[in-house]
């Protein structure tokens, strides 16, 4: 299993539409609209690197997504 944070830069005015499409992707556990450099950050968990590549491709294909940046989680502590 691999988990990753994918940061998304959205074109102006496309945030809500992107979130709607992201919510259809089953492997996305959490979606947060944030302030700052990126507009949306999602957390995904997939079986392998190939599936992670498929998810990033799917996200990049969403209308309004200008750029994505994937950070694979190597170690994590969480509540």
């Amino acid at each position: 299993m691999i988990s990753a944070y994918i940061m998304i830069l959205a074109a102006p005015g496309s945030g809500n539409g992107i979130v709607k499409e992201l919510r259809k992707i089953e492997q996305i556990e959490n979606t947060a609209v944030i302030t700052g450099e990126y507009d949306i950050v999602v957390r995904v968990t997939v079986d392998n690197v190939q599936k992670l590549a498929d998810i990033t491709d799917t996200i990049n294909a969403i209308k309004g997504v200008s750029k994505t940046h994937t950070h694979v989680i190597m170690r994590e502590l969480r509540v």
Partner: peptide, 29 residues
């Protein structure tokens, strides 16, 4: 990175901290 990660985790209010590859080294919620 692991000792910094543990120090951040010990701060009250931190729900998660992840050591990641890419532009940043740690992402904390």
């Amino acid at each position: 990175s692991l000792s910094v990660m543990d120090s951040i985790w010990n701060i009250k209010g931190v729900d998660s901290v992840a050591l990641v590859s890419g532009e940043y080294d740690l992402i904390a919620k």
